[in-house]
C-alpha cells in the first residue's frame, strides 16, 4: 500500500503490497465500534489491568496515572470493562 493506506485504486501498490512497514497504524479501526469505554475515575485504582487485556493495545497510561483508551483504534469490544477489577469502566453508546 502507498503511504496512505486509503487511496484510489490507481495508487495502490502492485498486488496491494505494503511498502511502508507499519502503515496499518494509519487505519482508523475506531469507527468499527458501537460502544466506547468510559472510566469512572472515582473507582479506578490505576492498576493498569485494562491496558494488559486490551487486544488492540490502545490503552496506555497518561500523566495522571489513569488508563484512557485511544478512541482512534478502540474497537469497542468491552474486554477492558469486563476485566477491570473495580468495575470502573462502563461501555456507553458511541
Amino acid at each position: 500500500m502507498s503511504d496512505l493506506a486509503i487511496c484510489a485504486w490507481q495508487k495502490l501498490e502492485l498486488g496491494t503490497a505494503i511498502t511502508s512497514p507499519g502503515n496499518a497504524a494509519e487505519l482508523r479501526t475506531g469507527d468499527w465500534k458501537t460502544l466506547r469505554p468510559e472510566t469512572d475515575r472515582e473507582k479506578c485504582i490505576k492498576c493498569g489491568l485494562c491496558s494488559v487485556y486490551c487486544p488492540e493495545f490502545c490503552i496506555s497510561e497518561n500523566e495522571e496515572g489513569y488508563y484512557p483508551a485511544d478512541l482512534f483504534y478502540c474497537k469497542g469490544c468491552g474486554i477492558c470493562a469486563n476485566e477491570c477489577p473495580k468495575q470502573a469502566i462502563s461501555m456507553i453508546m458511541d
Binding site: 493506506a5 486509503i6 485504486w9 503490497a17 511498502t19 512497514p21 487505519l27
Partner: peptide, 20 residues
C-alpha cells in the same frame, strides 16, 4: 527493501485491490 505481499485487505481497501 522490505515489503509485505498479500496483506489483509480491509473493507476500505479490498474493492480497490480487486479493481486493480
Amino acid at each position: 527493501k522490505p515489503v509485505t505481499m498479500g496483506p489483509v485487505g480491509v473493507p476500505e481497501v479490498y474493492m480497490e485491490s480487486r479493481k486493480q
